[in-house]
């Protein structure tokens, strides 16, 4: 990565409430922004604060665009995440049942995770991210390459999680999804913040030329 600036002068404040959705063309820096927030990488310069304080919230989870399934059963994947999140062992059975029901995978607890379909794997990954009951949930393209039915299941879960007070920050290529889920929209391009605002106004009256071009479906170069 040395010598290439991925994110540049990105000053972004993410408030509590409905999901914040990062949009922008490929290479805009959406994934990098999420990885920074997840603590998977440190910024070369600058800082990230949570509620104005530098300490990292304990309950923070991320779901990657291509989640890796542990070579265990669906239930085993959840059990692993519950253990890593420090959930008491006696609660595992109940939590696993609850999480699988939440993402619509009831009855698949014993199925090997890597033998689930793409949509099922994505939902299991979401359930796994939710295992520790995160206060901050980061989602990188949670429904890329999923069919509409699977996409709907995941969006419903995201809505439910957000409704219960967790802060969701997600990226998407799907402007319709950004409209359906977004509280705030953040438009990134080449590592810079172009425009941000509440979804309601962002889509109806974008403030910048770039946002207008992007929303019209034209290429932003």
């Amino acid at each position: 990565m040395r010598g290439v600036t991925i994110l540049d002068r990105l000053s972004l404040t993410v408030g509590a409430g409905a999901p914040t959705v990062l949009i922008g063309p490929n290479g805009a820096g959406k994934t990098t922004a999420l990885r920074l927030m997840a603590g998977l990488m440190a910024p070369t310069s600058g800082r990230i604060t949570w509620g104005g304080r530098p300490d990292v919230p304990a309950r923070r989870a991320i779901m990657f665009q291509k989640p890796a399934m542990l070579r265990r059963s669906a239930g085993g994947n959840l059990r692993y995440a519950l253990n890593a999140a420090g959930i008491p062992r006696r609660d595992y059975a109940g939590r696993i049942h609850e999480l699988l029901a939440l993402v619509g995978l009831d009855g698949l607890e014993r199925r090997p995770a890597r033998r689930l379909s793409g949509g099922e794997q994505q939902r299991l990954a979401l359930a796994r991210a939710l295992a520790g009951d995160p206060a901050v949930l980061l989602l990188d393209e949670p429904t890329a390459s999923l069919d509409p039915a699977a996409t709907k299941t995941i969006e419903d879960v995201i809505r439910a999680v957000a409704a219960k007070g967790a802060k969701v920050v997600m990226s998407t290529h799907d402007l319709g999804q950004a409209r359906r889920l977004g509280g705030d929209i953040v438009l990134l391009h080449r590592g810079r913040l172009l425009e941000t605002g509440p979804a309601a106004t962002f889509f109806t009256s974008p403030q910048t030329e770039a946002a207008r071009i992007f929303l019209a479906g034209d290429l932003l170069v």
């Binding site: 997840a38 603590g39 998977l40 989870a61 991320i62 990657f64 989640p67 890796a68 542990l70 070579r71 265990r72 692993y80 995440a81 890593a84 999140a85």
Partner: peptide
């Protein structure tokens, strides 16, 4: 393959080794 997931889950080094060997 597992690096991101395990790092995001804050898994300690010994448990990391055990996980990878088991999987």
């Amino acid at each position: 393959e597992y690096r991101d997931e395990l790092t995001a889950m804050n898994v300690g080094p010994l448990r990391k080794i055990a996980t990878l060997v088991w999987d």
